[in-house]
Design a protein around this nucleic acid. Sequence first.
RNA 1: GUCCCCGUCGUCUAGCCAGGUCCAGGACACCGGCCUUUCACGCCGGCAACACGGGUUCAAAUCCCGUCGGGGACGCCA
Length: 491
Amino acid sequence: MSEVRVRFPPSPTGYLHIGGARTAIYNWLFARKHGGKLVLRIEDTDAERSTQESIQGIIDGLTWLGIDWDEGPYFQTAHAAEHVAAANRLLAESKAYKCFCTKEELEAKREAALAAKADYKYDRTCRCLTPEESAAKEAAGMPFVIRFKVPDRPGTVAFDDKVYGVVERAYADIEDFVIVRSNGAPLYLLSNVVDDIRDRITHIIRGQDGLTNTPRQILLYEALGAQLATYAHMPLTLDLNRAKISKRSHGEIVAVQFYRDHGFLPWALANFLVLLGWSSGDDREIFSREELIAAFSLEGINRANSVFNYRPGDPKFFTDPKALNINAHYLRTMPVEEIGGLVAEELKKEGLWDPAYDGERRGWYLATVDLIRSRFHTLKDFATLGRAYFADEFEVEPQAVEKNLRKNAELKTWLSQLADRFAALPAFTGEETERVAREMAAELNVKPGLLINAARTVVTGRVAGPSMFEVLAAMGRDRVVARLRDVEKFY
RNA sequence: GUCCCCGUCGUCUAGCCAGGUCCAGGACACCGGCCUUUCACGCCGGCAACACGGGUUCAAAUCCCGUCGGGGACGCCA
């Protein structure tokens, strides 16, 4: 039994698209599951877009996601001579022919067919040329393309797709397609097949948009005398209007980089993406890397296109709610040491990092991260919503002031009295601060919540947060007392 | 238009191949409750779908046909 070999062949566009990322993930999972190899091959024949930066964008995206490959990156342009050689071989074996029809002629025929509401297919004019006629045209300096000679026989080209089952297409419905341009450059259909044969690819896992290319590529495999790969086409990802998602119409939201820049955990994104069109068959949705590799199979891929549930301008969810939910899930369940390291990166970017968090204050740092993480959805939240825990300058939510401070003007004096009592406490612990706060509420004959919520607003700047007394302990006496005494600024 | 593919809750999906255990299960979102000093977390509960029409069958989400709907491909792009 031969080794499983799959490939991910992106064309460089400067960023990794989430659809492309999903394709890469499926290929990667399949390779890892079967102890095979993943080949990264850059289809860079479009010289315009193939800059070093755009290639790097793809590589960075894959690397960030944790998708590693075993071979490559290979570059399609490095093999152009092979592609042409394959075409010449087909020519020599009469499996292809030179076509001298001009673009204008073809365009006219195509339009005529369209006008007549008929199906357009190349009419094989040049296939019928005698060798002499063909040689004469070439000698006259007429430019030509090379077309593949689709076998003239009844029946269909059929293949057993691992996702869609048996798919067939009548020979009669396939036109003699161009494999080499008039300038001598080979076309994708040919190059792709030649590369897959050379790279000994055993399984081609790609988007459903490649489904109609498959019969033509199979013909090429046959003509080239190569052993056919197994195909598995995966459904596409559409937007809520059922349109294909693209950077052009959806912007950054479809780029993997966007998620990296908005506080996503790489694996959380991968976990979300894999669920878009695949399921394990049981009820699990959260998978560790190892669990996913074990659970993955081509059979679990769904046939229907899936919808990326993204609503532009949604105030609550800046991307698919499920993606956010999965990210938040990992945020609050992963080992605190691990998330502590990722949060550290965010704090450093915002200038909130204290080297002591890695030293004598590490215990405090990790406990604080653990204390606040269940309310956050992305890594960014630690430096924004959680800023008060790491800095003395932080914004205070206007609603919090309105709701917890302004409604009762006496709070102004009560909070500074509370600060005094805290300052006098022998031990500044959660139990002691709670006891003191509750005693004071009882003396004043007000609900404890009044003082607690007011204190939360002053100390953290926010209406919502962890248990107030845990917050106080985390903040430390000095900060708490100072912030409580500074309450006047809100009146 | 032609060819190919698809059609289960708002979204992701299980079930379909081997028809009954499905008046359809899970997750997200949403709503309600519990917990509680707030908001989350957690737990409990609720709302919500087999596109439509025929057929086969004792029985159909599951098999067959048709209709409608959606997507993809129809390039000297990849």
